[in-house]
Amino acid sequence: MSFSDATAAVSDELAARDDIIICDSVDKWYGDFQALKGVSATIKEREVVVVLGPSGSGKSTWIRCINRLEQHQSGRIIVDGVELTNDTRNIEKIRSEVGMVFQQFNLFPHLSVIDNISLAPLWVRKRPRAEAERLASDLLERVGIPEQAEKFPGQLSGGQQQRVAIARALAMEPRIMLFDEPTSALDPEMIKEVLDVMKELAVGGMTMMVVTHEMGFAREVADRVIFMESGEIVEAGTPEHFFTDPQEDRTKLFLSQIL
């Protein structure tokens, strides 16, 4: 079994599901520097994929290409049956299907927590205000901080802010969630509360792509682990396989440094 092509499904049950994200030899350059070198992978519905790799390996760039925060220069990215091109209507459609959580939270500092969450349902989904706010408080309940609704992001701890950011992304009722190092900017004692919310999401059947350094999370929650280095997918497989029996030298080296 070759691991250089991450499209290979890890189990028969997964293989039977529909494809929701298809990346086909995606290339991305920043000037002369090639950040992604022919990345190919297929993500199945309700699959949880954890992307690992040393810093600068292109993992963030890759998931940012999936909702077009970065533009790839060649290859194809198809999300939920829609190909990402320069057509703005496609991009808007995909962005409302794909939620994203950032390393630095990127909450809107001038809006209260409840407004942060209800903004997009209100103006993108055109929901009535009362409904959008009800949705927002339900989501706050779900991420465990209903009492913070009227506060401003600056008054919350990092972990709480990240949970609000997750609620904000969920408010668009996305089919896919992208997490770009969601716990890297957090103090150690706050990491767990964010991971717990993410685990709950995974159990609930959300399709997730997670860039993280949390090996515990990868081992416990991921359906598949993809290891990247220098803009390439080096190896992919189930967590047991990946952590106990890595095939590639580069993977082994990475694991030996991190574990």
Partner: peptide
């Protein structure tokens, strides 16, 4: 990050600018 977060939520350019 504020631009990226607005884009990721699917806000249009006018909405992103105004809100």
């Amino acid at each position: 990050g504020q631009y990226e977060a607005s884009d990721a939520l699917g806000l249009s350019t006018v909405q992103r600018t105004g809100f």
